[in-house]
């Protein structure tokens, strides 16, 4: 009964998010995000008749669709990157250098595990594979958040909500997938509720943040900033060096 209520609430929230975006005409502003959301909605709606009328096919349908949705979830990270850094070529260039490094770093672990597996799967179980893929996404999102915070990139309400919701989803997914994999079937009953409830929280965050279109604010002072990067870098290095020298001079006898 409770699981059905959670499932229905999830469908309602996903539907409401898409309807609000269509009403506000900002569906096309975040195409990857809404594609992901539509795919989750379609999957949630499609799995129920499969479970009811073809229960023997449910297991494979669940996991195959789960991996498809997982791949589409990368689109959300891409959407955050694209939307946040489109007006900041300097920060975008930095992200283009840093993010592939972290991607290779986190993905190489999976690749090695898949290489050693006779089935060419990175995890011994589907749960383990999903968790490892979520970790790759989490590493990318964490690196992106760090960059956005370092460069103080201004963000609108929509983008902040996307980051908060998807970050929460990834963080909780990694934790509960790990616990489920570690404890096994004893955790299955609790997991059947924890997973969808965590996702409901995510949908609630997204619904509040994406109720209307709110892009990043325009900054008037931006045009007055230093144009020559080398001069800017030299100036900052000089200041850092001055602070360091002063500190050293103070301490030395």
């Amino acid at each position: 009964m409770l699981s059905s209520a959670i499932w229905l609430a999830g469908l309602a929230l996903e539907g409401a998010l898409i309807v609000r975006a269509m009403q506000g005409r900002f569906l096309g502003r975040y195409p990857f995000f809404y594609s992901y959301l539509a795919s989750v909605l379609f999957r949630s709606a499609a799995l129920v008749p499969i479970y009811r009328w073809w229960p023997q096919a449910y297991r494979s349908a669940y996991w195959y669709s789960q991996f498809l949705v997982l791949v589409l979830g990368c689109g959300v990270v891409w959407e955050i990157y694209r939307t946040a850094l489109s007006r900041y070529p300097g920060a975008a260039r930095m992200a283009q250098n840093v993010l592939p490094f972290f991607f290779v770093l986190s993905f190489s672990r999976m690749f090695v595990k898949a290489w050693n597996s006779h089935k060419w799967l990175p995890g011994a179980t589907s749960l383990e594979t999903e968790r490892d893929l979520r970790i790759v996404q989490a590493v990318l999102l964490a690196s992106l958040i760090t960059l956005l915070a370092y460069y103080a990139v201004p963000m609108g309400r929509n983008l902040k909500g996307m980051i908060l919701g998807y970050g929460f989803f990834l963080g909780t997914s990694v934790i509960h997938l790990t616990v489920r994999d570690y404890l096994g079937v004893t955790f299955q009953h609790a997991w059947a509720y924890i997973q969808p409830i965590a996702y409901l929280v995510v949908l609630a965050i997204w619904l509040v943040a994406l109720w209307f279109y709110a892009p990043a604010p325009e900054l008037e002072a931006e045009s007055r900033l230093e144009a020559n990067y080398q001069a800017l870098l030299a100036g900052t290095r000089r200041q850092l060096s001055a602070a360091r020298t002063s500190l050293a001079r103070t301490m030395r006898p």
């Binding site: 840093v98 144009a227 990067y229 900052t236």
Partner: peptide, 23 residues
């Protein structure tokens, strides 16, 4: 001043990742 640097550098297309990482 690091905050001001980041604010100025984020919109600069000439930014060099190597220099930024060193800084």
């Amino acid at each position: 001043f690091m905050h001001l640097h980041a604010r100025a550098a984020r919109a600069n297309p000439d930014l060099r990742a190597k220099d930024e990482i060193a800084l």
